[in-house]
Amino acid sequence: MAVPAFNSVAWFEFGTDQPEEVKAFYGDLFDWKYVLKDVQDVAETVRRGQGLGAKVLMEPVSDSAGFTFARLQDTTGNHFGVFSAPAA
């Protein structure tokens, strides 16, 4: 297995109610740039993932703010999440 390049993302996850502060801290610390790439349809992405062999760990749910998210496990055992933001 190759070692990831310095300051690249191999895996990370933050559960926070202060996302701007977290982005600023880690952006300054590692020179990370954040680009929002939400999926358009969480349920469809989950179906596509299942078709490719992913296991659904958490079916799509929406919170009171309108974010929809789900958790999956890829074919090599890695857990990941997909989400879509509410319309602005």
Rank of each mutant, 00 (worst) to 15 (best):
residue 1 M to Q: 08
residue 1 M to Y: 07
residue 3 V to G: 07
residue 3 V to D: 14
residue 4 P to A: 10
residue 5 A to I: 02
residue 5 A to P: 11
residue 5 A to L: 07
residue 6 F to A: 12
residue 7 N to A: 08
residue 8 S to E: 03
residue 8 S to A: 04
residue 8 S to V: 00
residue 8 S to W: 00
residue 9 V to Y: 02
residue 9 V to T: 11
residue 9 V to I: 11
residue 12 F to K: 07
residue 12 F to D: 01
residue 14 F to A: 14
residue 15 G to I: 09
residue 15 G to T: 06
residue 15 G to R: 08
residue 16 T to N: 05
residue 17 D to H: 14
residue 17 D to P: 05
residue 17 D to L: 11
residue 17 D to N: 13
residue 18 Q to I: 03
residue 18 Q to R: 13
residue 19 P to N: 13
residue 19 P to E: 15
residue 20 E to C: 03
residue 20 E to F: 05
residue 21 E to G: 13
residue 22 V to S: 15
residue 23 K to G: 00
residue 24 A to W: 10
residue 27 G to V: 03
residue 27 G to P: 02
residue 27 G to E: 04
residue 29 L to Y: 12
residue 30 F to A: 11
residue 31 D to Q: 07
residue 31 D to C: 00
residue 32 W to R: 03
residue 32 W to T: 02
residue 33 K to Q: 06
residue 33 K to S: 09
residue 33 K to G: 04
residue 33 K to I: 01
residue 34 Y to A: 03
residue 36 L to H: 01
residue 36 L to I: 02
residue 36 L to K: 00
residue 36 L to Q: 11
residue 37 K to P: 00
residue 37 K to F: 06
residue 37 K to V: 13
residue 38 D to K: 11
residue 38 D to S: 12
residue 39 V to D: 06
residue 39 V to R: 09
residue 39 V to S: 08
residue 39 V to K: 07
residue 39 V to G: 07
residue 40 Q to N: 05
residue 41 D to Y: 02
residue 41 D to S: 12
residue 43 A to Q: 11
residue 43 A to I: 05
residue 44 E to V: 06
residue 44 E to W: 07
residue 45 T to N: 01
residue 45 T to R: 09
residue 45 T to S: 10
residue 46 V to E: 03
residue 46 V to A: 08
residue 46 V to L: 05
residue 46 V to C: 05
residue 48 R to E: 14
residue 48 R to H: 10
residue 49 G to Q: 04
residue 49 G to V: 10
residue 51 G to I: 06
residue 51 G to C: 11
residue 52 L to Y: 14
residue 56 V to W: 03
residue 56 V to E: 05
residue 57 L to F: 01
residue 59 E to Q: 13
residue 60 P to R: 03
residue 61 V to Y: 15
residue 61 V to F: 15
residue 61 V to I: 15
residue 61 V to C: 03
residue 62 S to E: 10
residue 62 S to M: 08
residue 62 S to Y: 02
residue 63 D to H: 10
residue 63 D to E: 09
residue 65 A to G: 02
residue 65 A to M: 15
residue 68 T to S: 15
residue 69 F to H: 07
residue 69 F to A: 13
residue 69 F to K: 07
residue 69 F to Y: 14
residue 70 A to H: 07
residue 70 A to L: 10
residue 71 R to L: 06
residue 71 R to M: 13
residue 71 R to P: 01
residue 71 R to Q: 10
residue 71 R to S: 08
residue 71 R to H: 10
residue 72 L to T: 01
residue 72 L to N: 04
residue 73 Q to S: 09
residue 74 D to I: 01
residue 74 D to M: 05
residue 74 D to Y: 06
residue 75 T to R: 08
residue 75 T to W: 04
residue 75 T to A: 06
residue 76 T to R: 07
residue 77 G to W: 01
residue 78 N to C: 06
residue 78 N to D: 02
residue 79 H to N: 12
residue 79 H to V: 13
residue 79 H to T: 11
residue 80 F to R: 05
residue 81 G to T: 04
residue 81 G to P: 06
residue 82 V to K: 00
residue 83 F to G: 09
residue 83 F to E: 09
residue 84 S to L: 12
residue 85 A to Q: 05
residue 85 A to R: 01
residue 86 P to F: 12
residue 86 P to S: 15
residue 88 A to C: 02
residue 88 A to D: 10
